[in-house]
């Protein structure tokens, strides 16, 4: 059958649009997973036991099972309980929840890692409880937490390809649409891979910049 890359230009806009969707899904899910991660971390550390233990069970389940399985659960599960969400929304929720659990793990470790002496030191200086948390604990925790959360974002970008399976028309599914018309899977999946690679480079560069800025602010 051979390769023929001349079929690509005709579907360039399909791939570009798909790339934009992938970026949109990744960013939406990243934001959800970030704030979800903070919320989950607070629940896991400070909520009353009746909330804390069921939550830990939920987190344990999400960390021990494949993302794809979770996407199926959310997509079909929501339909079953009568909530018919657009695939895009279901995909963002699935990705966001999945990575929120991972982020929560990192944030918990970040909070616990800030030296207790720091808190005591701040209180000794006469800072209130809330001031100590805001001015002393949070800035230190953020610095420890940003690089690993950044790594999760990079993983999230690549895992966003999975939502094509529940019918979200992002980059992977866009490539599939082009393939269904041209029957040229090698060319279009390779082109999609190249798009992912470029988006990944951009994301990494952006994260490095954020990290540098945070590290510099001592």
């Amino acid at each position: 059958m051979g390769l023929d890359f001349t079929v690509l230009p005709e579907f360039l806009d399909t791939l570009l649009l798909g790339s934009l969707w992938t970026i949109g899904i990744t960013l939406s899910a990243a934001i959800l997973s970030f704030f979800g991660g903070i919320l989950f971390a607070v629940i896991a550390l400070y909520a009353p036991a009746v909330v804390r233990y069921p939550f830990r069970l939920f987190a344990w389940l999400f960390m021990g099972t494949p993302l794809l399985l979770q996407l199926f659960l959310i997509y079909f599960g929501l339909i079953q309980i009568g909530v018919d969400l657009p695939a895009f929304v279901a995909g963002v929720i699935g990705l966001g929840l999945h990575f929120a659990v991972y982020n929560s793990d990192i944030i918990q470790a970040g909070i616990l890692a800030v030296d207790k002496g720091q808190f005591e030191g701040a209180r000794t200086l006469g800072l209130s409880n809330w001031q100590s948390i805001r001015k002393i604990i949070v800035p230190q925790a953020v610095r420890a937490v940003v690089p690993p959360i950044g790594n999760n974002m990079i993983a999230l970008l690549k895992d966003s390809a999975l939502v094509s399976v529940i019918g979200v028309t992002e980059l992977t599914l866009s490539a599939q649409l082009a393939i269904s018309k041209t029957f040229r899977p090698f060319e279009f999946y390779l082109a999609a891979a190249a798009c992912y690679y470029v988006i990944n480079l951009l994301l990494e560069a952006g994260l490095r910049r954020i990290e540098r800025r945070i590290q510099a602010a001592r």
């Binding site: 999975l162 992977t172 999946y189």
Partner: peptide
């Protein structure tokens, strides 16, 4: 790049 895409290139391409 996503593992899923790598898999598709290998299997379908």
């Amino acid at each position: 790049t996503p593992a899923l895409i790598q898999l598709f290139i290998l299997y379908f391409g």
